[in-house]
C-alpha cells in the first residue's frame, strides 16, 4: 500500500517535470539496491528497502544524492526518505552539500518495531507521503549501550575497538560524512611499519567528531556495515550523553534541527 502511494507520487513528480530523476531503491530478483528512476515505467521495481524485515536493506541515498548534485548542481532530484534520511538531508543542507530547493524528499514512515529496534525518536519524515507515523522512542537507550555503559567499562570498549579491520566502512556508508580530508586517515592514528600492523585507534576520534559536532543522525548504517560488529551507534549515544550538551543527544538534535529549519525558512521568507 505504502509502495503504491510512493509510486503514484513519484509518477506525478516525473510527469510534471519537477524532478530530473528519483533516487530510490530497486528490487531485482532478491537483490535490493539504489537506483535513479528516470521514467514512470521503471517504478514497478521500486522497493522500500524491506526484504525480509522492515528496513533491512537501507542505503545512504542522501550521500549518493550529494554526489549527483555535485556533478549536476542545477538539476532537481527526488529522493526516498525515512525519518533518519530526512535528518541527514537537513545536515547536508546546513553544510551546503545539497541545496534544499533542488531536493524533493518523498517520505514514508517506519513501522513501530523498526523504531523500537533502532531506538529512533522520530521514525517518520516531515515530507510524509505514505504510511502512519508511529510515536518513536523518547529518551531511549539501546540494549548494548545500557549493558556496557562507557566510562566504567572503557577497557571493554577498547578491546572491542581492537576488532576493527580498518575497512573505513563506517565512514564510507555514513550519510553525513562529507569532509574532503578525513581525520581517520591522519598518520598519527594509523601505526605503520610493523607486521602485523597495530589496530587503528580512530573509533573514539570518530565518535567525538560525529557527536561533538552534532552531525550524527543515529541512523545506524555504520553499525550495520561493520564487518567486526562493533556497536558504533551505541557508542555514539553513550558519547553524546557524556559530552553532556543537550545539542548532541538525539533529542537535543531533534530540537536543534527544528529551530534551524524555522530560521532558514524565516530568512527565505524575509
Amino acid at each position: 500500500m505504502m509502495k503504491e502511494q510512493i509510486q503514484e507520487h513519484v509518477k506525478n513528480l516525473l510527469a510534471e517535470g519537477r524532478i530530473e530523476g528519483f533516487l530510490g531503491l530497486r528490487q531485482q530478483g532478491t537483490d535490493i539496491g539504489p537506483h535513479l528512476f528516470k521514467s514512470a515505467d521503471e517504478l514497478g521495481d521500486l522497493s522500500l528497502g524491506d526484504r525480509q524485515d522492515p528496513g533491512d536493506s537501507r542505503y545512504p541515498l542522501d550521500k549518493i544524492l550529494s554526489r549527483l548534485a555535485f556533478n549536476y548542481p542545477t538539476d532537481t532530484f527526488g529522493v526516498l526518505v525515512r525519518g533518519c534520511d530526512e535528518r541527514a538531508l537537513q545536515q547536508l543542507f546546513t553544510v551546503s552539500m545539497l541545496h534544499r530547493d533542488r531536493v524533493v524528499p518523498v517520505g514514508f514512515a517506519c513501522p513501530p518495531e523498526l523504531a523500537e529496534a533502532h531506538q529512533c525518536w522520530k521514525p517518520f519524515p516531515e515530507a510524509l507521503v505514505a504510511g502512519e507515523p508511529s510515536p518513536g522512542v523518547v529518551g531511549g537507550e539501546d540494549a548494548v549501550g545500557s549493558q556496557l555503559g562507557l566510562l566504567g567499562k572503557l577497557q571493554e570498549w577498547f578491546d572491542t575497538f581492537d576488532r576493527c579491520v580498518k575497512c573505513y566502512g563506517c565512514r564510507n556508508i555514513c550519510p553525513v560524512c562529507y569532509c574532503h580530508d578525513c581525520t581517520l586517515e591522519e598518520a598519527a592514528l594509523l601505526p605503520t611499519g610493523e607486521i602485523p600492523p597495530a589496530n587503528p585507534n580512530f573509533l573514539m576520534t570518530r565518535a567525538m567528531h560525529m557527536v561533538g559536532r552534532s552531525l550524527c543522525i543515529y541512523c545506524g548504517l555504520c553499525e550495520e556495515v561493520c564487518p567486526a560488529d562493533i556497536p558504533l551507534k551505541s557508542l555514539y549515544r553513550l558519547v553524546s550523553k557524556i559530552v553532556g550538551q543537550e545539542a548532541v543527544t538525539p533529542e537535543g538534535l531533534a530540537a536543534r534541527q527544528e529551530t534551524a529549519g524555522q530560521s532558514v525558512d524565516k530568512a527565505a521568507a524575509g
Partner: peptide, 27 residues
C-alpha cells in the same frame, strides 16, 4: 556509474555472503 565512469562502491545489503559489509579492498 556516473556518465560511464565508475565513481563508487556500495556493499550489497541483500547478498547472503557479505550481508552489507565489505573489507577495505572491496570498498
Amino acid at each position: 556509474v556516473l556518465d560511464g565512469r565508475l565513481i563508487g562502491t556500495l556493499p550489497s545489503k541483500t547478498n547472503p555472503i557479505n550481508e552489507g559489509k565489505l573489507c577495505v579492498k572491496g570498498w
